[in-house]
Design a protein around this nucleic acid. Structure first.
Lengths: 333, 333
DNA sequence: CCACTTTTTGCAATCGGTTGCAAATCATCA
DNA sequence: TGATGATTTGCAACCGATTGCAAAAAGTGG
């Protein structure tokens, strides 16, 4: 496979065909699984390809098949460590099934549409949208340009294919846990309030609180899922004297933990703290954060399944349950 | 731009040409800057394109121009937060100059070459290699398949175009700082010892120690740039009773800080701690880590420059200085 | 107004594969 | 062995743009 030095210009199928005296279509078929070719000829061609270092040109085959084997991944927040971890595993999983990932990193504020023009011209087979923020459904549809768009860890109001953690179950699990450890004055630090995911978590959280007769003593908004926002949110809540705080994401919770500790609050004795996501840092001994773990592997598996499926008729909205990971920030060890 | 509903099949240049009664080549030229076309005709065509929602098909133009406007980004460690931050800014910068990023996320151990076959078939214009680990020069050359490969934050033994932080300056700056705050029993926690970057940092560090007559009381290896490795490395060093420890990267240092604090060591009174990279978490008040900041923006700027350059004759190895960021982990506030 | 230069436009070949169709080969069975 | 059907192979059109070349149009000067 790594034979010889690569020539300046790579071999074409026609050239390889000429070299070994077969037709060019035979070469093409040799590389196309399931095509009409005898195994003997295929073996001979693959052998020669190996020997001369021929590899089919993916661009050319995109021309005719109109399939690029590329998925566009739309992201906007790689600062929150949850996303890189998700992207890493997603791209690897895609590679395993023969797809490559074209990254569209859209930055807020700037001319969104302009940033998305490329996604149409590159003819990606599928668009996977991870970005929680920014894109509204309409823009998204336009960007996909008729291709399949899959929402990953993000909700929409239309019926686009969606794979998402069950935020309701997650928020409820946290409340139930607070209840179990006998906390009743609860605080909430929201992420981006405008997003569907953010609203779902918050809604389920407050609903469950009410069901159990617990008291939401205060809630703080925030403009972003960042450490600083969590820090500030925690400080904002202190006056309400909560005995437990739920942060809409781990990165917020870490900021909150920092602020609370700096303020001399004992965790979990004075205030229990829980987050959402279970990013790797949540498990670090220095943080030891109770959190609702997103089922990343299953999310990805489902997303891949949707990417490969010919049609997505049923189960357009897949909600997967996660798991509450109880650590020292709520259980007095 | 967002006109109408996108038709199932997007318009081709020939169809648009027919619609408004011009030749297909005119349409092509209208979209090609600097091509021979009157501004009047161009305006008419662009107007019609807008109206009918036509956009040139990038795949087709790749066929003829043999330029894909895609750079392959080879990564292997997205767990270390330094890399996502780098990748985010790199892809955004590339987008700004009209390039898209195809992500090749190679996982260690597995059949590396197999994972890289795609990089050749997709005909990326340039390969930017961020992965510090894994790939040796030979494999890399093969994967690039004659195309330009640029090493970013990584060194090679050949003369491939390289953009890298000045690790020597960085390591020396840290030693000088330890010297300035009067620490003389120094410990070192290495990253992946096998990598060129790792060895450079370590070499410069020990050399400078010697120059200043300071004592390296101990050094710990590690298998990876991870929190856990840093934690373990710090513990390994404790017996040597250092009064300052340099960690080869921030993520290691954070682990080290955790271990040291857990062991009741006061930072910085008992042991001063410094890292390398200046990832965002280093600046969090909870960590407050002194570190050598990598000049990320300049690194990227240079990498983009090399991507766009027709030829890279001179300055094939660009070393950019960073900046020592002094925080609470070394300066007693 | 005409000859001549410069610019604009269209024609048609080309990039490197894929695939429908027909020809050629192989296999099977009477 | 010859007829018949099943496989295998090659031919050639096609995907949707780019671009060299020649024809057409526009601009210039005498």
């Amino acid at each position: 496979m790594m034979s010889d030095e690569s020539p300046a210009r790579p071999l074409t199928s026609r050239e390889l065909a000429a070299l070994i005296g077969v037709s060019q279509s035979a070469v093409s078929r040799a590389f196309t699984p399931g095509s009409s070719i005898s195994s003997k000829l295929r073996a001979r061609i693959l052998g020669a390809a190996h020997e001369y270092g021929y590899q089919p040109n993916a661009i050319a085959s995109m021309m005719t098949t109109k399939r690029t084997k590329i998925v566009g991944i739309v992201v906007s927040d790689m600062r929150n460590p949850f996303y890189p971890a998700l992207i890493e595993r997603l791209t690897q999983a895609l590679q395993r099934v023969g797809f490559q990932s074209l990254l569209f990193n859209i930055s807020p504020g700037a001319r969104i549409e302009e940033q998305l023009v490329a996604i149409r011209t590159y003819n990606v087979d599928t668009v996977i949208v991870i970005s929680a923020t920014i894109l509204d459904d309409r823009t998204l549809n336009w960007a996909a340009g008729g291709r399949r768009a899959i929402l990953l860890n993000r909700l929409s109001h239309q019926d686009m294919p969606t794979v998402c953690c069950d935020n309701v179950a997650g928020a409820r699990a946290v409340v139930d846990h607070f209840h179990a450890i006998d906390r009743h004055r609860i605080g909430y630090v929201a992420g981006l309030a405008k997003t569907a995911v953010g609203m779902t978590r918050q809604g389920a959280f407050t609903t469950r609180l009410a069901e159990l007769g617990m008291r939401l003593v205060g809630s703080a908004g925030s403009e972003a899922y960042t450490f600083e926002a969590g820090w500030q949110g925690a400080l904002d809540l202190l006056a309400a004297r909560p005995d437990a705080i739920f942060f809409a994401s781990d990165i917020l919770a870490l900021g909150g933990l920092g602020a609370l500790r700096a303020a001399g609050v004992r965790i979990p004795e004075d205030i229990a703290v829980a987050g959402f996501d279970d990013i790797v840092m949540a498990g670090w001994p220095t943080n030891d954060l109770t959190t609702y773990r997103q089922p990343v592997d299953q999310l990805i598996e489902k997303a891949i399944e949707m990417t490969l499926a010919a049609e997505i008729d049923e189960d357009r909205l897949v909600l997967l349950p996660g798991e509450l990971i109880i650590r020292g920030s709520t259980s007095g060890d």
